[in-house]
Structure formats: C-alpha cells, structure tokens
Amino acid sequence: MSVTLLIEQLLNGVQLGTMLFLMASGLTLVFGVMGLINLAHGSFYMVGAYATAAVTASTGSFLVGLGAGIIAAALVGALVELIVIRRLYHRPHLDQVLATFALILIFSEGTRWIFGSSPMRLSPPSWLTGFVTLPGDTRYPIYRLMLIGVGITVSIALYFLISKTRLGMRIRAGESDREMIGALGVNISKLYTLVFALGAGLAGLAGALVGALQSVQVGMGEPVLILAFVVIVIGGIGSIKGALFGALLVGLVDTLGRVYLPIFFRTFMPPSEASGVGAALAAMLIYILMAIILAFKPKGLFSAHD
C-alpha cells in the first residue's frame, strides 16, 4: 500500500514537474535572450487552455483543440511582443513588472468578459481516460502518464532545437551577447518575436494539458506562474538545464510534501492538528527550499548570467 502510494506520488511529482518545465522554459528563455521579466506568461497558459476548451467543444476533437490552443497562445504571444513587450527591453525591471502586470489585468478581465466567470469544461478524450497498472500494482491514470510523456518529448525537442539548429544557435548567441549578434546581421527583432512566441506556445500547451486535468478558469495561470518563478530562481534564471532540474525538484518536493508531511506529523500529534500543521507547512515547503538554496547559491543552481 505505502509503496503504491509512493510510486503514485512520485509520478504525480514528475508530472507536475514536467508541466512546470513547459512554463519555466519559456520564462527563462525570454529572460535569458531578451533580459525581460514577464509576469504575463501565465496569461498565455490561460489563453492556451481557453482556446483548447473552445475549439474542442466545437470540433469534438481534443487533438485539434490542443493544436489550436498552442497556436492561439503563440499568436497572442507574438502579438503582445510586437505591440507592448518590445518597448520594454531597454526599460528597468520595475517597468517590465508593471507593464506585464497590466497585461495580466487586461487578459484576465478580457477573458472574463468574453467567456464569463464560470469555469469552462475541458476533459481528456475518451482514449486517454482510464488507468494503467504499473509494476507493484499501482493503478495510474493514462492521461497523467501521457502528460509526463509530452513533457519529456518537449524537453528533448527543446534540447535539439537549442543545441542543434540554426535558430537555437542564434538563441544561444543572443543569450551570451545581444549587441554582437545584431551587429553580425541577425534580425534581432524577428528573433525576439520568435523566442517570445515559442515561450508563449509552450505555456499554452501546458495550460491546455493541465486545464483538461483541473479546470479552465480565469486566473488559472497565476499560481503556476509563481511556481515557475520559484523554479527558474532555483535553477538559475536564463538556464534551460536549471529550469528542467528546478521544475522536477519543485514538482517532487511539493507533491511529496503535501502527502507525507501530514502523515509525518500524525505520528506524534493528534490527527486534526497534524493535518492542519502538515498542510500549512507543506504549502510553504518549496519556498523554504528556495530560501535554503539561495542562501548558499544566490544566483541559483545553474546560473547562466552574472
């Protein structure tokens, strides 16, 4: 029983981690290449989920919906970059925070205006519902397993994109010296739009996939955004490797903490108190982890920038 629980929770942790990576990789790329802190990244997550829900409802196909969600998020990302974000690259971080905070307000209220306040329905397709039996008699939902698969696939694809393709070369060049690649004749503004749209598309994918698991509603991107911030702070802002490592670490610590801390406190406290203390402490666990890591490595584990 307890081994089953452990396997199940480990998988849940990895699943949360892979979805966090989809969010965090976009954030960290945008920061690494353009030096921009983007609070509105959670809005792309929400846009992806809403577009997927709307298209899935009208076409009946989850896959078509998913494709539409990714494209919608990437397009909205590109549009936002063209209209607002590119005015912010040379501004101080404070301006970037405020402008993207303004974008959150606009996106959240705009979505509420169009789709209403009640959550939209989005559920996984029938061929992805059900359970698989893993070794050790663990029954685990296929859909969550699929999320892990998608997360791993995207991570590998991203690795190849960045280390093997021409676009990836430019991204890496942009990370190490922005002015120089402009001087070398690379169309920097096009590159920036592309990177921003890529990040937005990944966030949209995460939003669509998680939206089918939880619910599609206004403000759904905000808790994830803050987790993604913790991830990239732990991993080192600008580092994809750090984002992957941080995402898995945060996913596992958060998931396991929520399950095992209350159990742990129950060994020496009355059950009602134990669940309260355990839950409260579990909610703080990843932030404590972040504080400890930063106390020793103020630039995160895999810092790309000094």
């Binding site: 802190i37 971080h93 911030f229 702070v233 802002i237 404590i288 504080a291 930063l294 103020p298 630039k299």
Partner: peptide, 16 residues
C-alpha cells in the same frame, strides 16, 4: 540577490 532575482524572491516569500 539583486535585479530580477530580488523581485521574484520577495514575491515567492510573500506567496509562502
């Protein structure tokens, strides 16, 4: 820490 790190860390502690 400084810069973006400071922004995000103060945010994260408040969320905690």
């Amino acid at each position: 820490t400084t810069g973006v790190y400071f922004i995000m860390i103060t945010l994260a502690f408040a969320q905690m």
